[in-house]
């Protein structure tokens, strides 16, 4: 089997194991139906209130960094939905550190399935759909309230951006998990990038200092989750005066992020298997 054939085989096996394990977790959750319903409702409440913070700001101002409320809602909806999807699919990988600490990672390593798939499906939490729901609702409001000259390209760009954004956030989550092979109780560093990144992307790039925008465009390319494609859709100046074609770059950026995250994961796993801790 060549390198390519092997990768495809690994991907298929991984997806299969992922579905099996996630399915088991859903059944486990359903063993406590009432508790599940409660966390689902409170999850909706918590994520919902997240947008209320922005509404509170807009109760005192009409624009932030030159963006109106529906425009900020567009940014918010894109990043929250993307992050919600990534968090649902692969967010559990953030628990890797505790699995390494208590030694239960070893039980995953003796099963005939890729470890990343098993870790990602570990404690699969269906309640995380509340974040996606809330993000999608805000996005729907934004689409209805913004004044956009819709073209075919713009319409197509929205779902493409959502998926690419989810993949970029997913890559961040995997890279963060890989880091936990080395530093087991540094799970909070990951939240600086994920929750921090999501908070950052809720606001227009015009709000932030040039250095910060440069960092999240070229170093941690979170800008492609929503800022750059949204600038195209909303006919706004591009952050850092990027060329116009970059609005279509999110899928490319997502693929590159995946490749890097994959390398980080392999390095992390290799270091675990050589040190056992």
């Amino acid at each position: 089997m060549g390198e390519k054939g092997r990768a495809r085989y690994g991907l298929r096996e991984g997806w299969r194991a992922y579905r099996l394990i996630a399915g088991m977790w859903i059944r486990s959750t359903m063993a406590y139906r009432l508790s599940f319903a409660m966390t689902l409702v409170s999850g909706l409440l918590v994520t919902g209130l997240d947008f209320v913070a922005i509404l509170l700001m807009f109760s005192r101002v009409d624009a932030l960094g030159g963006y109106s409320l529906p425009e900020v809602a567009f940014l918010y909806g894109l990043s929250a939905t993307s992050f919600g999807i990534a968090d649902l699919v692969i967010g559990s990988a953030g628990r890797l550190g505790s699995r390494v600490r208590d030694g239960t990672l070893d039980t995953l390593l003796v099963r005939p399935a890729p470890v990343l798939a098993q870790v990602a499906a570990d404690r699969f939490a269906l309640r995380r759909v509340s974040r996606i729901t809330q993000g999608a609702l805000v996005l729907a409001y934004a689409l209805a309230a913004t004044d956009v000259d819709w073209t075919v390209a713009k319409v197509l760009l929205v779902p493409v951006t959502l998926v690419s954004g989810a993949v970029i956030f997913g890559a961040v989550l995997v890279a963060g998990a890989a880091f936990q092979f080395v530093a087991q109780d540094a799970a909070e560093v990951q939240s600086a990038f994920t929750y921090g990144g999501q908070t950052l992307l809720q606001y227009p790039p015009t709000v932030f200092g040039k250095e910060l925008v440069r960092a999240v465009t070229f170093v941690f390319p979170l800008a492609f989750v929503n800022w750059v494609p949204a600038a195209y859709v909303l006919d706004r100046p591009y952050p850092l005066d990027l060329p116009e074609w970059t609005a279509y770059a999110p899928p490319l950026v997502a693929v590159a992020c995946c490749a890097l995250a994959g390398l980080a994961w392999r390095a992390g796993l290799r270091s675990y298997r050589s040190t056992g801790s």
Partner: peptide
């Protein structure tokens, strides 16, 4: 890790508040 996270969140919030 906590110090790092708080610094990052602080940065984001500071820019937002300045705007």
């Amino acid at each position: 890790a906590g110090v790092f996270t708080n610094t990052v969140f602080g940065l984001i919030l500071v820019y937002t508040y300045l705007a």
